[in-house]
Nucleic acid binder design. Structure first.
Lengths: 233, 233
DNA sequence: ACTCGTATTATGTCTAGACATAATATTGAT
DNA sequence: ATCAATATTATGTCTAGACATAATACGAGT
């Protein structure tokens, strides 16, 4: 009957999911402790613990020391979004990637950029605009501000061959970041670069990354109409 | 000097991140094995292992048995999107939530819905349209198809007081699902319900959920303009 | 050279037990 | 009855060691 002689953490995870989905354990219920479950499944407590921690990370369980583990009432399911390089994204769709640097300027940031990065408006920054193409079709328009103090070497970088997107990932690994997804109507600039009608609905990804002490970059990616971000839960 | 007497997995994680961000270990580099690192940090192999697994899950490292662990060349960073109930989302923004059921029909699905759920076009389904409001303002318009065979009890459910969104989460915990994020121009229907101009750019979330054997529901949520999805990396 | 089987190796999983920590429950003092 | 100190308890972390598994490296035979 059973696939393996011993009980693995994956077996336990499956069994717990089964009990939840068959409503043997219902939302809000307190379930047995690790000790008890370990005895039931005939395995070590650590094995049960790993399974439970995974389910808690996925949002299905809520665990608190001393209080125990219960089935989440309002499960806040967590979906993992993969954020690849634009090049990898394009190539993953079976298209040929190319990128074009449209502009590169050393200028102080506008107020909204400075505010978003918590920088002074006089901070020297590099402003880049680039177009990512898939099979020579506009794929995404990138508008990026780079905090030169955080990555001084970018001043000498050739961003024509390697996109800023890629250069930064290779040369300035970030520690933390923020991602904001939204929909917007194409500005005249967006429309012109992407070759769509002004006002067309486009998908916007805004990304901010930080190293240990300071902001590295703020990027706004405007995707050509039809772009979808996909993930499984 | 050191904060704690023993080395914890979190300490190791921080140290590895430091070595990556200070380019002591560079993209593509093979780093020492768990055994060796455990010796360096003066802890058990399992402790190193946990730290490394977390970093690999986050996309910073690539690990393969026998081949060892190396710094990711094209780090596909993973952002965790939290998918709360619309009610929790609204309440989390400090607004008062209300929902209104606009229509409820037992009808067979249109071709694109049937195809998306891998169901026969003759399968009995429940079609629901509802509006989620925040402080009496349109927040999101939900267009949902429910596979009645998967949750027969929904036939008798009162979906006026509890939204279908919430009813399904409480009564039909799903095992897996898909999420598609996109931008679209508001259809005349979207525009009318949300009270925006037709053609306005709106953020669309399409969700499909499955139980162990069959699809449960397909939902399209059209958010009022200005909606942003936010996450940290 | 080339292929196939075998040895080796780094990560993956598991165990059994110890101690740490957070949160609740209980008790004692006021 | 109320509040603070203390005991209890379930999860969280760590250790040391064993075995499993995947993937490479190596060597024998052709």
């Amino acid at each position: 009957m059973s696939a393996s002689p011993t009980t693995s953490w994956a077996d336990i995870k499956r069994e717990v999911i089964r009990r939840i989905s068959e409503r043997i354990w219902r939302p809000g219920d307190l379930i047995p402790g690790e000790q008890e479950l370990a005895q039931e499944f005939g395995c070590a407590r650590a094995t049960v613990s790993k399974a439970m921690r995974e389910l808690a990370d996925a949002g299905l369980l809520e665990r608190r020391r001393k209080a125990g583990t219960r089935i989440a009432i309002n499960p806040v399911r967590k979906a993992t979004l993969e954020i690849p390089l634009v090049r990898i994204d394009v190539e993953g769709r079976g298209s040929t990637y190319r990128h074009a640097l449209l502009s590169r300027e050393d200028v102080p940031p506008p107020a909204h950029v400075a505010a978003r990065l918590q920088l002074d408006a006089a901070t020297p920054m590099l402003h880049l605009c680039a177009l990512h193409l898939a099979d020579e079709q506009a794929f995404a328009y990138e508008d990026r501000w780079v905090n030169v103090a955080a990555v001084p070497e970018i001043a000498d970088a050739d961003l024509e061959t390697l996109s800023a997107n890629e250069w930064l990932i290779r040369n300035a690994a970030f520690l933390s970041g923020e991602l904001t997804l939204s929909a917007a109507e194409a500005s005249t600039e967006d429309a012109e670069v992407l070759g769509v009608a002004p006002g067309a609905a486009i998908f916007i990804v805004q990304r901010i990354t930080w190293n240990a002490t300071q902001p590295i970059t703020l990027a706004r990616l405007a995707y050509a109409p039809g772009y979808r971000m996909h993930t499984s839960i």
